[in-house]
């Protein structure tokens, strides 16, 4: 508690380079960009392999291997290779981290859809893409959203590492606090990250309400 009051009560964190709103925005920027790019890659790929069944084994195994890529290692490697002029050094490791949950859940959601549903859809004369988008996707949506949510939260929590190579975001408080043994700052930074993650979580819960058909939500 004391740490929280010390951190949020300090004027130091409300203006200038270290202002909370600024750090928050930077954090959101890294996280959102990485997440959006990952989703743009993983969702179409997951839909494709889930629907056609082609290349599924390879993609799922490599997705699991990608989970193992150490973010910190990748981050320092990319910075050393291309420098810090752009956001890519943070984005690349975060994208690598964000893809697997989305990809695997999208694939499993489509592949795991009721075979009778697929059969009936083809039997009524839907074409391949219509079967995918009108029958399978709506049913897979809860699982896909779950993958997106896990991915988004991991990205928000991990984007803190960017601060290690001198980039901004909420990780600054944690890294700087650690360097100066200022645990109030570390703690405050962590709390901000968790709050942001909870906001993301709430956002996904709402999104689920809006875009998942009640007919599907009930079944799960």
């Amino acid at each position: 508690m004391n740490w929280l009051i010390e951190f949020f009560g300090s004027a130091e964190y409300w203006s200038g380079d270290d202002a909370i709103p600024l750090r928050l925005l930077q954090h959101l920027e890294y996280s959102f960009l990485a997440f959006a790019i990952a989703a743009l890659i993983a969702i179409p790929l997951g839909l494709l392999i889930g629907h056609t069944g082609r290349g599924a084994v390879i993609v799922v195994v490599s997705a699991n291997a990608a989970r193992a890529l150490p973010t910190l290692g990748l981050l320092v490697l990319v910075v050393l290779l291309i420098g810090v002029g752009t956001l890519w050094p943070v984005l690349i490791p975060l994208i690598a981290l964000a893809i697997p949950p989305i990809l695997v859940n999208t694939y499993e959601g489509i592949r795991g859809a009721d075979p009778d549903l697929r059969d009936a859809a083809y039997g009524m004369g839907l074409r391949g893409s219509q079967v995918l988008f009108r029958a399978l996707l709506p049913v897979a949506l809860p699982l896909i959203l779950l993958g997106l949510r896990l991915s988004a939260i991991t990205v928000v929590a991990t984007a803190t590492v960017a601060a290690y190579v001198g980039l901004g975001g909420l990780g600054r408080y944690i890294i700087d606090g650690l360097a100066t043994k200022n645990y109030a700052e570390v703690f405050g930074g962590a709390v901000l990250v968790v709050l942001l993650a909870l906001a993301v979580q709430t956002g996904f819960t709402l999104l689920n309400r809006v875009i998942v058909s009640p007919g599907v939500r009930q079944v799960r």
């Binding site: 009721d114 009778d116 549903l117 059969d119 009936a120 859809a121 083809y122 039997g123 009524m124 004369g125 839907l126 074409r127 009108r134 029958a135 709506p138 049913v139 949506l141 998942v212 058909s213 007919g215 599907v216 079944v219």
Partner: peptide, 23 residues
């Protein structure tokens, strides 16, 4: 063409295979 053919033929299966997300 299969899709065209099927649109002109009704098809009913054992588990109905209704779209769960549609009314």
């Amino acid at each position: 063409d299969p899709a065209t053919l099927r649109r002109g033929i009704g098809y009913v299966i054992q588990q109905a295979g209704l779209f769960p997300h549609r009314r």
